[in-house]
Design a protein around this nucleic acid. Structure first.
Length: 1016
RNA sequence: GCUGAAGUGGUGGAAUUGGUAGACACGUUGGACUUAAAAUCCAAUGUCCAUUAGGACGUACGGGUUCAAGUCCCGUCUUCAGUACCA
């Protein structure tokens, strides 16, 4: 019986599906364990071998946890709203729902054939109305909430309304818009509904606001920063303008501090936590107000700045505003107007990228205005400079050149004074910015203080004179939540008098309407503007035809849709109770599963999905909807699998013909093998000379070119093959040039290349018709391609489809090989050739259990060696799984099978537990052999074998004997031998004497059980 | 610039707390089997010197600590990812 993997895999996949082997129960005596993969987007291209990497790792872990006796939740689903389906719809008119469903089918088939232990009964799709009903519901909860800084959590908006009507907003400590007006209870109660709603919008956790966006009129859509290249749209190259638009925003800034603090209690990778910390960007300091000295028009202005170094306030010698700062036009003096305007214009032309990349150039302009120092009352010149960013802090800085390098450079460049306020520091060359060593001088009441003390005192004094207060700034900005797209969640929102109204939760979901065209409307409205049935009737609580809009009972619905991250910000909770129609998940399910124990996915989601999800989870926690405020305890980033591209080399130069020295004909191609090309490059001069028939004897050539005879023969042979090939193309020869041999690499499809880098020429020319008459110059009778590691992509023809791998080698081989490639988190290249290694291992494994006439396994007593092999394997594999070091387990299995084969082991006591160890990695073959050993239950919940250290106890050790740290020989000695005895035995050994050659050792280091080192 | 990760044979990668560098594979070479090929099996395979015995050099580079360094310390370089001139 041979290892028929196709049959075995199909059999067990069917068995698992029919027996619902991996269905997780919400009620269980067992401890819970929740293993989750990041939501896949079902793209039309299907899976390539890079995609399942993380799924295989999480599947191994999930299966391992089942062997450990856990009730494991390991679900899968689809983040199925998104741009590619919409773009395909725009091009073809196909409804995105149809293409999405097709893509999901392909994905599902591909996932199934790899043998994952997913509980498919819990599958969710974000584009399914039964799912997005709850996405809409969460949106409504956000709308109906505000953030109370006093209780430090989100509260229902009704609590805010009652405060407003009782005492106005003076004592409300909320996260809200910057420009909220103060009002009393009487004011509030006197406001009309629209005014009250406007005010409440400034407090809600999701709110409508004017946001500046990148608007592309030609595409009728808003573009993300990375969709803009060189100031025009990436697609089509249309111009892009900055435009203000009213859009929904999420007040994530309310959670900045908690998102930051929460990082300390979750086990995520350091790099990921670091990028979230940077993204949140907390800085502690003070806000300081400077009065602008009144100009001729006698207007008075104030400049507010944020600084992290209020202790250096006496070192301020100028102020810098961002060129975009609104005060610039108001304070600029007539004399400076021209210069300032020119500067602003010049900055506006430079893209953000330019401004970022160019740190060296210092530029700016003086406004002519002066501000007054709050303490010294000295006038301070006000400048503008593009190193100050409008979007951060207040868009203005107090410049302390002695303490900040950028301020220093600016001051030097424009000849502004640089007062030194640091005790004993030399600032003639550069600024001094070391907070720890700071001692303040020349600063009135701050003299002699260190950074900490001076900061505290400065803030205290600023508050006393009403010129500032301590402040913490965050970079994190509120997130825009509107998209001008079709294929996304519709908002459960209609508009009355321009004010947004939420639809009652009981009427959800608001389903995506049908449209004729998926493009924006001619008037520039989002695609939902094309819908004819898209109005809300407040009497029947139904979506009705637009014709009926009367603005009394029937109102227009929101035309934007939600962004891609809406559905993925809470899906991990839905898996706990995926089919609940009454709640997004029942309290029982949420309290049982609580959070994700292990989350695996790519690091590209660090500041998107993973930050927004934490935000929503914290919000739902505040509202008492979920029991924990962090959704994933542990997170691992899997690395990307790269492709190994293959190249053929096309000669790009001319040929010599009867008519001309050099002519070329693009239809006549010479394709040269990698090694041949390298030989040409190495001996180019010699080839050139051969062409010119320089009369030299062989001996002369060998000396002149310093080559051996063998190389000369190779060169000569290659030269002749090139002559023949040129002849076949109708030329006399290649037109050899001195010092140049132009050749151009082109991608060949990797599937035409075998494990030795040899190209299947026939397959290649069938694929690229234009090369069907090409001449191939070979090396050793074959064409060898060049190889290079690149990102796996269709255009590089290096994509490897798992379907073919599974058909040729089986899913177990694929799973093992993906793990065998290297550490999970690392980027590593895929090379199909190597898969024979793990495939052979599975064949050897099979042979260990199954012989020609049937099963090889019996009740023989295991030998000492058998037990040793098994238990060291148990130990290593268990350690590896717990450390997510799956690549080393695969090696361990190979070693175990090699050893047991040599030992001719047939003992069931050894071979049965070995299958349980292997089953998370290669579940099909393990399940089959387990079954053949007479087990009727699936292997999936068999207990993981117990490690017994007593089988690994050794009585002797093969000691490495080193001399001055260099290992010279090994010596087998009993482990219970004392240090002195070891030393004596080793020194007496003849090889030791040989090494020492009569010298007396200065020192002998003996580490029992490890090493002996003789110094001298 | 900053932050994070990494740099070991021809290739992917092993190496516990500092203790035999290169496990396990791929590839290559040689051999067995076969009419032949594939498959399978066996052997060799870091580089250099040496007929052998053996020796020298080797974990990006330069230093250091140590009986002993891929591993620890200092400095430099390179690659990849993220990012924000963040006051």
């Amino acid at each position: 019986m041979t290892y028929n993997f196709n049959e075995i895999e199909a059999k067990w996949q069917k068995y698992w599906a029919e027996n619902k082997t991996f269905k997780a129960e919400n009620n269980s005596e067992k401890p819970k364990y929740y293993v989750l993969d990041m939501f896949p987007y079902p793209s039309g291209a299907g899976l390539h071998v890079g995609h399942p990497l993380g799924y295989i790792a999480s599947d191994i872990y999930a299966r391992y946890k089942r062997h450990q006796g856990f009730n494991v939740l390991h679900p899968q689903g689809y983040d199925s709203f998104g741009l590619p389906a919409e773009q395909y719809a725009i091009q073809t008119g196909q409804h995105p729902a149809i293409t999405t469903a097709e893509n999901i089918k392909t994905y599902r088939r591909q996932l199934d054939q790899i043998g994952f232990s997913f509980d498919w009964s819990r599958e969710v799709r974000t584009s399914d109305p039964s799912y997005y009903k709850w996405t809409q519901w969460i949106f409504i909860q956000l709308f109906n909430s505000w953030y109370n800084n006093d209780s430090n959590k989100a509260e229902d908006i009704s609590t805010l309304v009652s405060v407003f009507s009782a005492e106005g907003n003076a004592n409300v400590n909320a996260v809200c818009d910057d420009d909220v007006e103060a009002f009393s209870a009487d004011d509030w109660n006197g406001f009309d509904t629209v005014k009250q709603q406007e005010i409440l919008l400034q407090y809600r956790l999701t709110y409508l606001a004017e946001t500046e966006v990148n608007w592309c009129p030609a595409l009728g859509t808003v573009l993300a920063n990375d969709e803009i290249v060189n100031g025009v749209s990436e697609r089509g190259g249309h111009s892009v303008i900055r435009k203000k638009m009213t859009q929904w925003s999420m007040r994530i800034s309310a959670y900045a501090e908690r998102l930051l603090q929460g990082l300390d209690k979750i086990d995520w990778t350091d790099s990921l936590k670091e990028s979230q910390r940077n993204w949140i960007g907390k800085s502690v300091g003070a806000s300081v107000t400077f009065n602008v000295i009144a100009n001729k028009a006698n207007q008075s202005h104030k400049i507010e700045v944020f600084t992290t170094r209020p202790d250096t306030i006496f070192g301020v010698s100028f102020m810098t505003l961002a060129p975009e700062h609104e005060l610039v036009s108001q304070i600029t003096t007539p004399e400076q107007k021209a210069e300032v305007e020119a500067y602003i214009l010049a900055t506006a032309k430079r893209s953000e990228r330019d401004r970022m990349a160019d740190v060296k150039t210092i530029s700016g302009a003086f406004t002519g205005a002066y501000a007054e120092h709050p303490f010294t009352k000295e006038p301070i010149p006000v400048w503008i400079g593009d190193y100050v960013l409008a979007g951060y802090g207040t868009g203005a800085v107090m410049s302390v050149p002695c303490g900040d390098q950028r301020d220093y450079d600016f001051a030097k460049h424009f000849n502004i004074s640089i007062p030194n306020i640091f005790e004993g520091e030399d600032i003639s060359e550069e600024a001094f910015s070391d907070k720890e060593k700071t001692v303040i001088a020349n600063s009135d009441f701050l003299d002699g203080m260190n950074y900490k003390k001076a900061t505290k005192r400065a803030i205290f004094e600023l508050e006393k004179i009403g010129h500032g207060q301590g402040k913490t700034n965050y970079r994190l900005r509120d997130a825009v939540f509107s998209r001008q797209r079709y294929w996304g969640e519709p908002f459960p929102v209609y508009y009355v008098n321009g004010m947004p109204q939420m639809i009652e939760a009981e009427h959800l979901p608001i389903k995506l309407p049908e449209v004729e065209k998926y493009l924006p409307t001619e008037t520039g409205e989002p695609p939902l503007g094309n819908a004819t049935v898209w109005a809300w009737c407040t009497e029947t609580n139904q979506v009705v035809s637009n014709d009926k809009i009367n603005n009394t009972t029937i109102h227009p619905l929101e035309l934007n849709t939600m962004p891609g991250w809406a559905g993925s910000s809470w899906y991990f909770n839905r898996y706990m109770d995926a089919h609940n129609t009454e709640e997004f998940a029942s309290k029982e399910a949420l309290n049982y599963w609580k959070d994700v124990d292990l989350y695996i996915g790519g690091s590209e989601h660090a500041t998107g999905h993973l930050l927004y999800s934490r935000f929503w989870q914290k919000f739902l926690f505040d509202k008492g909807e979920v029991p924990v405020d962090e959704f994933a305890k542990k997170l691992i980033n899997q690395g990307m699998i790269l492709g190994t591209s293959a190249f053929v080399y096309i000669y790009d130069g001319g040929f010599a013909s009867k008519e001309a020295d050099s002519e070329s004909d693009s239809s006549k191609n010479l394709i040269i093998s990698k090694g041949a090309l390298e030989l040409i490059y190495k001996h180019l001069e010699l080839f050139h000379d051969l062409w010119k028939s320089n009369p030299q004897t062989k001996a002369e050539i060998l000396t002149n070119y310093r080559i051996d005879e063998e190389t000369f023969i190779k060169v000569k042979d290659l030269y002749n093959s090139l002559l023949v090939a040129s002849g076949n193309l109708g030329f006399i020869s290649i037109a050899w040039l001195n010092g140049v041999f132009p050749a151009r690499p082109i991608h060949a499809n990797v599937s035409f290349v075998n494990s030795s880098d040899e190209l299947d020429i026939e397959a290649f020319i069938n694929w690229r018709e234009e090369y069907k008459d090409a001449e191939f110059v070979l090396e050793d009778g074959v064409y060898k391609v060049g190889r290079e590691v690149e990102k796996m992509s269709k255009s590089k023809y290096n994509v490897v489809n798992p379907d073919n791998i599974v058909a040729d080698y089986g899913a177990d081989s694929l799973r093992l090989y993906e793990m065998f490639l290297g550490p999970l988190e690392q980027y590593k290249p895929w090379n199909t050739a190597g898969i024979t290694g793990v495939h052979n291992f599975l064949k050897k494994l099979w042979k260990l259990y199954v012989g020609e006439e049937g099963l090889n396994v019996n009740d023989a007593e295991p030998t000492k060696d058998n037990l040793k092999t098994l238990h060291k394997t148990i130990k290593k594999v268990q350690e590896d799984i717990e450390n997510f070091s799956f690549n080393t387990s695969v090696s361990t299995f190979m070693i175990a099978v090699n050893e047991l084969t040599v030992q001719k082991c047939t003992s069931k006591q050894i071979l049965e537990p070995l299958l349980v160890l292997l089953s998370p990695y290669a579940p099909h073959v393990s399940e089959e052999l387990w079954n053949q050993l007479g087990n009727s239950e699936s292997i999936s919940t068999a207990p993981f074998p117990e490690f017994d250290a007593s089988h690994l106890v050794e009585s002797s050790k093969n000691y490495p004997i080193s001399f001055n740290g260099k290992m010279r020989f090994t010596l087998e000695l009993p482990l219970d031998m004392s240090k002195d005895e070891i030393e004596k035995t080793v020194l007496a050994h003849e090889k030791t004497q040989e090494q020492l050659q009569g010298r007396t050792p200065k020192k002998v280091i003996v580490v029992p059980g490890k090493i002996v080192n003789i110094v001298g």
